[in-house]
Amino acid sequence: MEEGLNEKSGDVTEPTAAGMTRLDSQLVIGLHRVVQDLDRRTASIARAHGLTVSQFAVLEALLNKGPLPMGELREAVLSSEGTIPVVVRHLQGRGLVERRRDDLDARRSIVSLTSSGCELAEQVCPDNARELERSLAAWSPEERSEVVRLVRAYRRGNR
């Protein structure tokens, strides 16, 4: 079994010297390792297409959701307020996205894919999806459903 996810003798629910139970520690470490692994795989795919992970995330969000106001785009890619304008500016410079003022609210910018951006997103997104599907195949569909259920329960309990 992977280090940090082993079952040592003794009660896994007893607090460790650090104050966290071994079970909780194994859970946190295990979840962190899964996310790191998936992030590394996505970063590799993005790099192969000349993108950063943030740039890939923006292209993917726009491909899936269509044109978005800058704030909604930031939320869709889980980015900070300061980061997303920089990422969009770089993508604009490469001719992959365009920004225009919102017709209904001139304070807002709407970001959309250009035809070049759409073409690139339609290449990189399926590549990434295939890689993630291969990775997640370590779990059966039932196990993946259970993980989704547990993540939703965690999020509901920690709002």
Rank of each mutant, 00 (worst) to 15 (best):
A57N: 15
V124A: 12
G19F: 00
P15D: 04
L27I: 06
G93N: 13
E3Y: 06
H90Y: 11
R94L: 14
Y154D: 07
L96G: 01
E2L: 14
G71R: 10
D39S: 14
P141F: 11
V58I: 08
R144I: 09
L5H: 01
V147R: 05
E2V: 14
S115M: 09
E131P: 06
A17E: 14
S109L: 14
E143P: 09
S116K: 11
Q92S: 15
E98M: 10
C118A: 13
P69M: 07
D24K: 03
K65T: 10
T13W: 00
P85A: 02
I110E: 11
I110Y: 03
R108H: 04
D37W: 03
N128C: 08
G157W: 03
P67F: 05
V77H: 00
L23C: 06
M70P: 02
R156M: 08
L120I: 10
V34G: 05
V124H: 01
P141A: 11
P126K: 06
G19H: 01
G19S: 01
L27S: 04
M1E: 09
R40V: 07
S54F: 09
E133P: 01
L62A: 08
A48C: 03
L23G: 08
R108V: 05
S44E: 13
L78E: 12
M1I: 05
H90F: 11
V34E: 11
I29L: 10
L132A: 07
V35S: 11
Q123H: 09
L120G: 03
S25W: 06
Q26L: 03
R47P: 10
T52N: 08
R130H: 10
G95A: 02
V86T: 14
L132K: 04
E143V: 09
H90P: 08
G95C: 04
A46F: 03
R155W: 01
A121S: 10
L31N: 08
T16K: 01
M70G: 06
R107Q: 11
V147T: 05
P126W: 03
R159G: 15
A137D: 14
R74V: 00
S9N: 08
G19Y: 00
Q92R: 15
A76K: 00
G117L: 08
T13G: 01
A48D: 15
N6E: 15
V53E: 12
A48F: 05
L68K: 10
R156C: 03
L91R: 04
G19D: 00
A138F: 03
S9T: 13
G117P: 12
R107G: 11
R47H: 09
V87D: 12
G30V: 01
G95I: 02
G71E: 12
I29T: 13
L5P: 00
V35M: 10
